[in-house]
């Protein structure tokens, strides 16, 4: 029990350290920790955090998805195209979610029926989805008329009582919901079993192929929603956006304790992982450090987080 808690607290401790370090480094800790700045950080986290919710499911199941960034661009472009051609924004939103889910189903089907490893399948899908996005958008950004869709991620929502942007609340609600699904439902339990020991899961009568497709499909829907959020933030559909976002998203899951071998990971951890990166980025900006410094620091953090996690695991086994 104690160990589970240490494992849960590990990433949170990392987050506290990052926040403290930057609060002390900046001349005005009050400004770094101001509610104003916190709101900015939270709305900046939404894209990575939403993606990380889906990615957590995939990584726990023992898979990986490299096509997230491209899926975000594709669904973002589709949302913009829909709204521009006069669809109600809600319909465009649903279309984006379904399109993301469709990409996920394709990934899952190829992985299970053609028996190609997820890394390769989704690497291929990365190119395909990006290409389709550019094709649909005629290699240009797609401008949209102003609708409520553009307000999902504004730092100060028009309705003051919301305090935080709708996108942040949505992310929070989905995080709680998916965490519940993973921990408390048969579906979630089987995702853990699949990632922990696929042969055992199959021997227990679980249809592992169908389960895999379902996992990629659910995660794909979340990536579709992420694409709509991305569109909302840019206020246009950009087929070149979110290039490399998959790496940030995977990093968030891994910093949060997810294991690429499957069977391990938590939504709470992944959310903290996403926040660690957002606070880092924001802190570096506040310090006026150039972009490349951020990249170096985040690179170090990813490796250090996983190395610490391994050290903790071996310490735990030797003291069991």
């Amino acid at each position: 029990m104690l160990r589970t808690w240490i494992a849960r607290l590990g990433p949170a401790l990392g987050l506290v350290i990052v926040v403290l370090v930057f609060a002390l480094l900046t001349d005005a800790p009050g400004r770094y920790l101001s509610t104003f700045n916190l709101r900015i950080v939270l709305s900046q986290t939404v894209i990575v955090a939403l993606g990380a919710i889906g990615m957590t499911m995939i990584i726990i199941s023992g898979g990986i998805d490299l096509s997230v960034g491209a899926t975000i661009a594709l669904t973002g472009v589709m949302t913009a195209l829909g709204i521009r051609s006069g669809w109600p924004p809600s319909l465009a939103l649903v279309a984006a979610v379904l399109a993301g889910g469709f990409v996920g189903v394709l990934n899952g089907m190829v992985i299970t029926t053609l028996r190609v490893v997820p890394f390769i399948v989704t690497l291929g899908m990365l190119g395909i989805a990006r290409g389709v996005a550019k094709w649909l958008a005629h290699e240009q950004t797609v401008n949209v008329p102003t609708t409520w869709m553009n307000d999902l991620l504004v730092t100060f929502p028009r309705q003051g009582w919301l305090v935080l942007p709708i996108g942040v609340w949505t992310t929070l609600a989905l995080a709680v919901f998916v965490a519940f699904v993973l921990r408390r439902t048969v579906f979630g339990r089987r995702i853990f079993a699949l990632g922990s020991n696929e042969a055992a899961a199959r021997a227990c009568g679980i249809d592992t192929n169908r389960l895999k497709v379902a996992v990629y499909a659910c995660a794909g829907c979340l990536f579709g929603l992420t694409g709509a959020m991305q569109m909302s933030r840019l206020r246009q559909g950009d087929p070149t956006v979110a290039n490399g976002a998959e790496l940030d998203i995977i990093a968030a899951v891994v910093i949060g304790g997810g294991s690429l071998n499957g069977g391990e990971g938590s939504i709470l951890g992944s959310m903290i992982g996403a926040l660690v990166m957002a606070f880092l980025r924001n802190g570096c900006q506040q310090m006026g450090w150039p972009n490349y410094i951020q990249e170096i620091i985040i690179g170090v953090i990813i490796v250090a987080a996983v190395a610490l996690d391994r050290a903790r695991a071996s310490w735990a086994t030797s003291h069991a």
Binding site: S196, N197, G263
Partner: peptide, 14 residues
Amino acid sequence: SLCAHLSVMENVLL
């Protein structure tokens, strides 16, 4: 052939 990451109860009822 057990799932090491799951609990005893979860494995038994998998």
